[in-house]
Design a protein around this nucleic acid. Sequence first.
RNA 1: GCCCUCGUAGCUCAACGGAUAGAGCAAUUCCCUUCUAAGGAAGAGGUUAGAGGUUCGAUUCCUCUCGGGGGCGCCA
Length: 577
Amino acid sequence: MEEIKKQLQNIFTKTIDDMIPDNHIVVTFSYPENSLHGDIVSNIALTMAKQTKKSSHEIATLLVEELRADPSLSTNIREVVQAGPGFINITFTDTFLINCLEAMSASITFNIIKASTSGENILVEYAHPNTHKEFHIGHMRTLITGEAISRILEATGANVFRANYQGDIGPHVAKALYGIKRLLQLEKLTLEEIQTYPGIKRAKFLGRAYALGSFEYEANKNEIDEINKKLYEKSKDIDTLYQITRNWSLEYFSEIYNTFSTQFDKLFFESEMVNYGKEIVLKNSPNIFENDGGTYIFPGEKYGLHNRVFITKSGYPTYEGKEMATAYREYEAFHFDRKIHIVANEQQGYFQVVFKAIELLDPLKFKDKQFHVSMGMVTLIGRKMSSRTGDVLSIDNLIEEVKEKVSELFTAGKISDKVRRTIVQQISLGAVKYSILKVSTGKNVAFDIEKSVALEGNSGPYLQYTYARTYSLLEKSDKNITINFKNYKLNHEEREVIRHLLWYEEIVRICAEELNTSLICEYLYQLAKLFNHFYQKHQIISKDDEVTSFRLCLTNVVSKTLKNGLYLLGIDAPIQM
RNA sequence: GCCCUCGUAGCUCAACGGAUAGAGCAAUUCCCUUCUAAGGAAGAGGUUAGAGGUUCGAUUCCUCUCGGGGGCGCCA
């Protein structure tokens, strides 16, 4: 595929150079979804029309002639036509498609895909839950997205460092600690008792404690502020309580990361950034930061942004202040060329200011190297969600509810309970992940637990099901069939599948460069759909060995592509459903 | 008040500035004695919020209006 693109590119470039001597035109190709428009298309004539003062049709005609006249293309290209406003539609020969398919089938794994991200060191920072608070659907969205983006980047040969920066200090913790003390009193419980609870139950308890502390904050401001002070001072009074409950959160988070197949290279903590963050801000005042009535601010207004407080009047660094230290600490851990923050879009203004401040601190390390993938917010339909009241749909509940539905559908027999549970888990998570990843990252999503986590149609399980189907076919086949099918005559459905398969790497490349996950979802969905259509219409394993051999080869490549694509999305591919 | 974002089918969402704006769900019909029916086929559903502009070409870029969401000094 890459070779033929290059070949076409060369021919086009030569012709273009003749027409426009000193041009910087880059010839690109795209995938026409509709096969009536050929297998590969160029819009070069349209883009050149203005410069050459010729009509796009005229240019297209010329280029079409060039291609038709080139003898080196004849075995690979069946037809070149000009269409529409001046597109050049190119159709491959069956021979070419079959050769491509064979090549794809022969390699066991996918190669590293060449892209602008190849070889780049990229730190992806995602998840960012706060200890002593609920890990909610919004965190889950960034967790799922961060993992998928990491994998997609790795597929293009980027060196990815997975970082997670967790908030374990500050007023929210103080509120929770206050709430814990109150709840223990009210419910006549002890820490030791709760210590014996399973992780999820301890996390729930913390969630309620935070909600209570938050609710009673105004009435007990002094007491809670005092706790906050003690936290920053690492006072013995509360340290034990703090450490124990912090661990509850962290153990619970760790279970979640496990469930979602994420392994962070390093966990960073806000509490580790307090002193260093403060030091950086003070050291760079007044040149970067300014003392404003006892607080230290970054004067964002000077740069067309807005001012933000980096050190409070009480002398504690805010999240902004701590972020300064995080930038350095993360850089020490991994010399990134680029750092990607996968964080909700409500932080957009925050990042603009903070990026500017960091850039001024150390332009060499940080200028133009920080990016915010602005995640849309998740709102729940039909349920209230508020971490202040503790009334949230936890992700455990979500997964459990999905699992129940999946169990009802999953009727495969002759397997052990253990295998069954594993598969149900894989399908449920696949459904949840896909429902998140198919939506573009920036968009707010209205999450309806009844409808959003789809199990049929354009859904994770649909892709998994199709994969399981291919697996079953390949298992059934006599693998020794290796009949030569070079002269096989493709039918329409087979052709549709193969021409789609040719574009997989290109799609992954685009996803990596644009940090996009929905495009790959769409691609895989189309692939599965085309394959299922083919499957429905034609018998794959038949008496004709040539046909069987060819169709199994096709099935094999579809299978591999689905599995690889699902992997990039962080979704497991069960071998039976 | 200022800044950011979004507005596409009844609902939830797609669409590198490209061809007839696509899917799923819901609703209507068909297809399991045939390799997995979580599947396949057929039809129905649209003035892309509105008005201008740039362009050979605009859902996409620019301006304005209307509407939703978010953010703007001691939270994270």
